[in-house]
Design a protein around this nucleic acid. Structure first.
Lengths: 197, 197
DNA sequence: GTCTATAAGCCGATAGAC
DNA sequence: GTCTATCGGCTTATAGAC
C-alpha cells in the first residue's frame, strides 16, 4: 500500500518472469536484479537469499493460478463433467501459447528434487493441496461418495498433462486428459447414484 | 566388448547417478569427472559437451526402464486391469526407496524447458513414446476399440503420479493412479465388448 | 587416451558509503 | 534503501605434454 512503485514487487515480478521462462538454476541473481532495474545489493536487502526469492516467485503465483481454474470452472455451462473437462480444454489453449513452459510449481519441484524441505517446494505442495481440496469440495457437493479419491485422480491427470505436454509439446494430451477426467467423474457419479461404495 | 573397464561407460554411469540424484544443472562436469575417477580433460575427450553427457545419461536409462515395466506387467497374474494396476503398485514401492527422486526423463524436460530442441529432451520424448506404444499394443491385443486414446490416458496417469509423488513425497498417489487406470481400462473394455465406439 | 594446468568468466553473497 | 565495488569460489571448456 505504498505510494511509490514497490521495489520488492518489481524484483519478484522480474524473478517470476525469468524463473518461469528459463528455470530457477539457469537464472542468476544478477539477471533478476538487472531485469528489475535494481542492483544486486538492493535485491539482497529485500531477500535473504536466492532460495527465498524462488519461494517468493511461487508464492505470488498461488492465488492467481487457483482463481483462474475457478473461473474456467464456473464460466462453463453444463454439468460437473463438462466443467471439469473445460479446465483441461482451457489449459490446452494456454499451452499453445509460445511462452508456455509447463507448471511452474512442478518444474521447481523437479529442479529442487535434491532439496526436499526447500521453502519453495512447501509452497508448491500447499498450492497443489489447495487445488485438490477445491476439487474435493466440488465433488462432495455433487454427492459423490469417494470425492477425495476422485479429486486425487483428476489432479493426477492434470499434473500428468503438464508433464507430458512439456515433454512432447503436444497440447492434445490435455484434451485426452480432460476426456479421461470426465469419464472418471461420470463413473464416480453413477456409482454414487446407485448407492454403491 | 572391450576387455578393460570402459572409461566412457564409467563416466556415463557416474553422470547417471549424480544427475538423477542432484539434478543436471546442480551437478558440474568436475563432479562427474571426479566421481568417475578421470580428469575433466578425459571426460571432454569422450563427450563434446555437458549437453551430450546429459543425453548419454538418459540414453542408458531407456531400455532398462522399459524392460522393468514389461517385467512388472507380465509377472502379474490376472487380467489386463490387474496387470496395469500392478505397474503403479510396483512404482509406488520403488518410490518409497529413499533415493527415489521421480522420473529422470521428466525432470530433465522440466530443467531444460527453455531448450525445447535439446538432444536429451528428444531422447526423453522418444522413451515416453515407446512406453505409450507398448501400452497401445497391449490394449489392441485386448481388442479395445480406442487403444491409442487409452494408452495416452494411462501414460498421463503414470507421469502425473511421478510429478505429484515427487512434490508431496506421498507414494499412495501412485496407488490412486493405478485405481484410476484400471477403471479406465475396464470402461474401455466394456465399451468395446458392447461394440460401441 | 589420459594427464596437469589454466583460461575467461559467472556464481551467490557481502562491505561499506551515502 | 539504494548505491559502487568486490570477495572467494566455482563454471564449462581448452592448451599442450606424454
Amino acid at each position: 500500500m505504498t505510494a511509490v512503485p514497490n521495489t520488492r514487487e518489481r524484483i519478484v515480478s522480474a524473478a517470476a518472469k525469468l524463473f518461469y521462462s528459463e528455470g530457477i538454476r539457469a537464472v542468476s541473481v544478477d539477471a533478476v536484479a538487472e531485469a528489475a532495474g535494481v542492483t544486486k545489493r538492493t535485491l539482497y536487502y529485500h531477500f535473504e537469499s536466492k532460495d527465498e526469492l524462488i519461494a517468493a516467485y511461487l508464492d505470488v503465483r498461488d492465488q492467481p493460478n487457483l482463481k483462474l481454474f475457478r473461473k474456467w470452472f464456473v464460466e462453463t455451462e453444463g454439468d460437473v463433467m463438462a466443467k471439469v473437462e473445460a479446465i483441461f480444454r482451457n489449459l490446452a489453449r494456454a499451452a499453445r501459447h509460445p511462452k508456455w513452459k509447463g507448471c511452474g510449481f512442478l518444474r521447481v519441484s523437479a529442479e529442487l528434487a535434491n532439496m526436499p524441505g526447500h521453502p519453495a517446494i512447501r509452497i508448491g505442495a500447499t498450492h497443489k493441496k489447495k487445488f485438490e481440496d477445491w476439487l474435493r469440495q466440488i465433488f462432495e457437493a455433487e454427492r459423490i461418495a469417494d470425492a477425495e479419491a476422485l479429486a486425487r485422480q483428476v489432479l493426477l491427470l492434470l499434473d500428468g498433462s503438464f508433464a507430458v505436454v512439456l515433454l512432447h509439446r503436444d497440447p492434445t494430451y490435455m484434451e485426452t486428459a480432460g476426456t479421461a477426467a470426465a469419464s472418471l467423474v461420470k463413473l464416480a457419479l453413477s456409482r454414487s447414484v446407485m448407492g454403491c461404495r
